[in-house]
Design a protein around this nucleic acid. Structure first.
Lengths: 196, 196
DNA sequence: TGAGTTTGTTACCGATCGGTCACATCGATG
DNA sequence: CATCGATGTGACCGATCGGTAACAAACTCA
């Protein structure tokens, strides 16, 4: 009977690969990508560097995989939104604002994809396509939602909301939780009203 | 006659300390803080590591000094704004938007202070007070400008404009120049109108 | 000119980084 | 039981990092 996996942090019931990705996501978010060593990731995943490199050819590859995993979770949110208010796009838009405001309160680190783009300045880093695809996807979905909600300028409204949430999340990092990010929800409501 | 400083990159007419700070600003902006080594900074400043460490006790100290220098330049912008339209706060606010939009077009890297806050996750890093002071100062000045321009809710408008510019600059990094950042100026005008 | 300060040069330190090696161990499946 | 693929272990590599020691050269200013 395997007693060594009784109550360890990462729950050794999953396979190493999944544990590595989830540990990488957490450490990248908390400490940044460059500041997180592969050794620390392996250790947090309750495995070792060799196993990490058997699954991922390089740290950059693991970075990409982590960002893809996070992207996938965002897709889940949109699916849940559609399921919660199948025929009320207005409510979906309100819920989007509410969810983003909650996220702002509970996650002090901002958007992992955005942070990765800020931190990884090499223009040919393999993470960039992942980031750009994610941002384009979020934009496309939000434009669709704004259109469904009956906005008179869905693209502009979606971009305004995007700028507000991106600004709020990053401003929370630089100006603190009492800074301009507190105006996020009110700003969204004003934007939605002005482009109804 | 000192012929060796004919046309070298950094213009060796200034003192090493100033050259080091300006080289550090440039390299931090282009490659990020953690990705920039002190050796590279010294070389770009046309000097050496030893001289760098005679002026700055550590890399972190140099980071702080660089961020302070950049903060000072922002103060110059506000002074120039006041000087250009001494008795027309409306025009000053319009000019603020215009200047920020220009900045968005010409500087692909976003705000150095914001980027530093995103990259430096250690909560006790000496750069944080510098960043927070800068952000608080910008906010205070913008609230004042919005109030002078006659907004009915100057704090809210200032925060909205802050979220829009922070979002636009960071979104330019992650979603590219064709992304939501293109809506920045229109979003600002809409915000200003809705809180006139 | 001379003294004192500021720079330049070079080599070096310990630590850490991403990444690889050979080899032992485990777990499932036949 | 035997086999084989997946995993664990620990040592190791070259490169780079932030930071320092020691000494030579240059500049400043009386």
């Amino acid at each position: 009977m395997p007693e060594e996996l009784a109550g360890n942090e990462k729950g050794a019931k999953t396979r190493p690969r999944e544990r590595i990705v989830s540990a990488a996501c957490a450490l990248f978010r908390e400490n940044g990508i460059r500041a997180t060593g592969v050794e620390a990731i392996a250790e947090a995943a309750d495995t070792n560097k060799m196993t990490l490199y058997r699954h991922f050819g390089s740290k950059d590859e693991l970075v990409c995989e982590s960002l893809k995993t996070i992207s996938a979770k965002a897709a889940d949110f949109w699916a849940g939104l559609e399921r919660a208010f199948p025929d009320d796009p207005q409510a979906r838009l309100d819920r989007w604002v509410e969810h983003r405001a909650d996220q702002l309160d509970h996650d002090p680190c901002g958007c992992d994809l955005t942070n990765a783009a800020v931190e990884l300045k090499e223009p040919d880093h393999p993470a960039y396509p992942v980031i750009e695809r994610y941002k384009a996807d979020q934009r496309r979905r939000l434009v669709g939602l704004c259109a469904d909600a009956g906005s008179r300028e869905p693209e502009l409204l979606a971009d305004m909301l995007t700028l507000l949430i991106e600004g709020a999340r990053v401003s929370r990092c630089s100006a603190g939780p009492q800074g301009p990010s507190r105006a996020f929800a009110r700003a969204c409501r004003a934007a939605i009203l002005s482009l109804r």
